[in-house]
Design a protein around this nucleic acid. Structure first.
Lengths: 256, 256
DNA sequence: ATCATAGTCGTCTGCCTGACGATAAACACT
DNA sequence: AGTGTTTATCGTCAGGCAGACGACTATGAT
């Protein structure tokens, strides 16, 4: 990097660097993402992913965590502190730098992926009407009609691509990691975890085989001793996420 | 992104954006990375990953491909053109933006991963002594001694971290994709492909089970009809990489 | 001729998964 | 109280795949 070039500030073009957030959660049995309405041109009035500029003195992950807190109040789970603070999971997704992706100037955006349990309604700078959870299918369908019959405008900028990449990352990552628990509250049942997989993958899973798989994988789930009937039916054991982060062998996503 | 902020060029700090390259290949049965010697401070004389500034009018992937061509003469395989041009594989790895990662100024670097077949000696701006292939273990050991007994200085900047991330990506990705063929020449034998896996993972694999696995996976290998004895022993069938990119079920990396 | 090297085909056993039957424990009715 | 519905949990069985490893083949080296 900069291997053969003396330091000359005029030698490189100025870039703006932003972070964009793909915040995913599972609500009412479907995978949803956080969208905010743009108040300024370009794309004024259109929905977009939350995000903002990286500040001069902060790391990329810090910037993403700050934006997340500003938009949702969510705190990020600190991997260094294994206590059960149960913040959201945050990881870097990819970086988007097409010269024309922002019509105003050269903007390079470092997208981050956030997985969060189901939350109360979002806030966006205190204005609730400018932020919402929307099913990812709805946000990704181009020029279709939403659940309420209103026409759906595609997301601003290249955010549809970013969202699609984030969803794909989440779908593949819950296969071989215990990340699906990031969508669950601190204590959850096997059935609730299964409904997370079903919502993210959009498939139905056999409850018996799923139960055998997750309870038989060492370190995945830790029973808390409690039970709950909040889903109706027979009371189910409550679990916390165990220490294991990698699932080996992985959870298999059913064929199409 | 930039959702609630009017366009004001003074509102964001100026960033330099670079691409850094983790170029991996397999030479003499070990996984090697391309390193270039820095000609300028900081870290003058130390080894670093190749890379450079992103230009005003180019995409991030374009910048990475351009730097790769400048440093090695390698061309990148174009995914849109499925012809057998057999360029190298290039993909985005991750982005590094710690405020202090470059002591001179705020630099955000978008690292890319390149997998290439074994190549003739590298060139770096025409100066061969300033570029080399080095085993990744050697580049990653901090403050140890290299194969020739000379002390090894750690890589410049945060490039040891970037290299480690790239190696980890390559190690995991050959599990569930056919990417290992990117390390091979256009035609190769099952044994050569096995030696790629062994070098990247640093393990020994059973030749019989490996043969069964790769030849039994539809779309992974396509026989060309030819044979070769370049490895000694009984002649081996030659194959090309098939169209399949995902390996299902994956190739299993042996336990520790 | 013999050996060393590398490739290829088989066999066997154990583990995991998918399909699915059966039972258990709650609630909502009537 | 009884019946049906819902969800959870335990078991069984067959098929597929991976690890361990034996056997045989085809070349070059000595």
């Amino acid at each position: 990097m900069i291997a053969d070039m003396p330091y000359d500030p005029s030698a490189f073009p100025p870039f703006a660097v932003t972070v964009d957030l793909v915040v995913l959660t599972v609500r009412r049995h479907s995978l949803c993402a956080l969208a905010v309405r743009r108040g300024e041109p370009p794309f004024q009035g259109r929905w977009a992913l939350p995000g903002g500029f990286v500040r001069a003195d902060e790391d990329l992950a810090q910037a993403a965590a700050r934006e997340l807190a500003e938009e949702t109040g969510l705190r990020v789970h600190d991997p260094a502190a294994p206590t059960q603070d149960h913040g959201a999971h945050l990881e870097q997704l990819a970086t988007y730098g097409d010269p024309k992706r922002d019509p105003r100037m050269r903007v390079v955006s470092v997208a981050h992926l956030v997985l969060a349990p189901d939350l109360p309604a979002p806030r966006a700078g205190g204005d609730a009407s400018n932020a919402r959870w929307a099913p990812v299918d709805e946000l990704l369908q181009q020029g279709g009609y939403g659940r309420d019959g209103e026409p759906v405008a595609p997301l601003a900028f290249d955010h549809a691509q970013i969202l699609a990449d984030g969803v794909e990352r989440a779908r593949s990552k819950i296969e071989y990691s215990s990340l699906a628990t990031a969508f669950c509250p601190p204590e959850f049942t096997v059935g609730e975890l299964r409904r997370v997989y079903e919502a993210v993958w959009g498939v139905a899973l056999d409850p018996r085989n799923f139960h055998r798989k997750v309870t038989g994988t060492p370190g995945f789930l830790v029973p808390t001793g409690g039970t709950t009937t909040r889903q109706g039916g027979r009371p189910a054991q409550l679990f916390r996420a165990g220490g294991a982060t990698l699932l080996n062998p992985p959870m298999l996503r059913p064929e199409v």
